[in-house]
Design a protein around this nucleic acid. Structure first.
Length: 405
DNA sequence: AGGCGTTGTCGACAAACGCA
DNA sequence: TGCGTTTGTCGACAACGCCT
């Protein structure tokens, strides 16, 4: 017994060569729930003890069966599991695409991907993560790490591994260098002058409605209510690899919404529509020259020139959304009203007041007119082609925006 | 009840590419 | 050759769930 040791469960024993007296390995033994004796040999004591712990855990969980009756565990590689896992998960097309590129770039060609799921240790992950950081930026590293971690979490749920080896603290947290900025109404007005006429109404709309780029690029004639001075946002366009532009419902249910617009914006929009928009209810309000929804890259090129021209190269398209939010806030809109206008989902009680909030949006739009600055030629264009109804009465009056349904 | 990490999703930008 | 598309890469926001 000198060479062995007792534990709470089973025991380990050193094995040595009878002639030389040298240690040849370790053996672990225990008595199973069926009172049978079970043993296994290992090269190190640590491994022997680890096995005992594992067996003990099986018994504690009621999952123990005699070793010779256990089904051989199929070894699944990380690559195999990830592939299957992505297929099963419910993901938005864009996300699926994103994840597939993660796998392609950072797993299939990496030694980690070929390893058996169960064989991957925290150390393996750490090594892989530092490789990751060498090949890509901090944000991407964090995103990919977070993704792999989520895959392992799924593997844990699938009982393929006991724990998630992704244990690097904070590694999935992407550092943010927030460069949030907004434009002034004057800057917007100036930017319009540097845009092709085709794009002016679109940018104006973006800056005062807060629509997402995917939303206004896909706006259809039927979504525009000139009389009610509002647009209905229920779809957006996305660029997907291999599929070109794809139209789908908005991001969230609460994202389907009605956004009221200031009268002056509606005026510009109306003029624009008569000149550029496609015919019919499904006609694009802002078609490209060849009649497709304006693509992200085109929008970027166009906007880039304008923002350079006004000396605001830092102003991104998405910042127009923040601009719109800020202006709406100036009218005295509440948080709930702003969220509704921007299409944020509101998990709180605000939804109880949905009707009231929607009604308020019209008032916000009316109030916004006080803040708008427009280039002279756009103002003139607005007056040349007055909208029959929307122009009646003072737009300052709170009753101006909301009309019938 | 708010902070915080995780997970899902979309936008921004730029270079390569394709077509009339 | 100009204009728009496709693709790759990275950045950022938002929802969610957990923890305190």
């Amino acid at each position: 017994m000198a060479a062995g040791s007792r534990r709470g469960f089973g025991n380990t024993e050193r094995r040595k060569n009878a002639k030389t007296g040298k240690t040849t390995g370790w053996r672990a033994r225990y008595r199973g729930p069926d009172l049978g004796r079970y043993h296994r040999s290992f090269t190190t004591k640590i491994d022997a003890e680890a096995w005992l712990y594992a067996e003990e855990a099986l018994i504690a969980r009621g999952e123990w069966v005699p070793p010779d009756q256990r089904v051989a565990r199929v070894t699944v590689t990380l690559n195999e599991y990830v592939g299957a896992n992505i297929k099963i998960r419910k993901l938005a097309p864009r996300t699926r695409e994103e994840y597939e590129t993660y796998v392609e770039r950072f797993l299939t060609h990496d030694e980690l991907g070929g390893k058996s799921l169960r064989a991957i240790s925290a150390r393996d992950i750490t090594a892989w993560y530092s490789r990751l950081q060498e090949h890509t930026g901090t944000t991407m590293s964090a995103r990919v790490y977070g993704f792999v971690s989520s895959v392992f979490n799924a593997a844990v749920r699938d009982r393929l591994v006991d724990h998630n080896p992704c244990t690097i603290r904070g590694a999935s947290e992407a550092p943010r260098r927030s460069k949030k900025t907004i434009a002034t109404p004057e800057e917007i007005a100036e930017a319009l002058l540097h845009l092709d006429k085709r794009y002016r109404a679109m940018i104006l709309l973006a800056a005062w409605s807060g629509l997402r780029s995917g939303e206004f690029r896909n706006l259809r004639r039927r979504n525009v209510d000139l009389v009610g001075r509002r647009v209905v946002v229920d779809e957006q366009v996305q660029n997907l690899r291999g599929q070109g532009k794809v139209v789908r419902g908005v991001k969230t249910e609460a994202g389907a919404r009605i956004v009221h617009l200031p009268a002056s914006v509606i005026g510009v929009l109306e003029t624009h529509m008569s000149e550029f928009s496609q015919a019919g209810p499904d006609g694009l309000v802002f078609p490209s020259r060849i009649g497709t929804p304006i693509s992200q890259s085109v929008l970027h090129k166009v906007w880039n020139e304008a923002r350079q021209a006004i000396g605001r190269p830092d102003l991104r398209i998405h910042d127009l959304r923040a601009t719109a939010a800020t202006q709406a806030a100036r009218t005295g809109a509440t948080i709930a009203e702003l969220q509704a206008r921007l299409g944020h989902t509101t998990p709180n009680a605000a939804m109880k007041y949905q009707a009231a909030v929607a009604a308020r949006d019209a008032h916000i739009a009316v109030a916004l007119d006080d803040f708008i600055t427009l280039p002279v030629d756009l103002t003139a264009a607005k007056k040349r082609t007055p909208a029959p109804d929307a122009r009646k009465g003072s737009r300052r009056k709170a009753t101006g925006g909301k009309r019938s349904t």
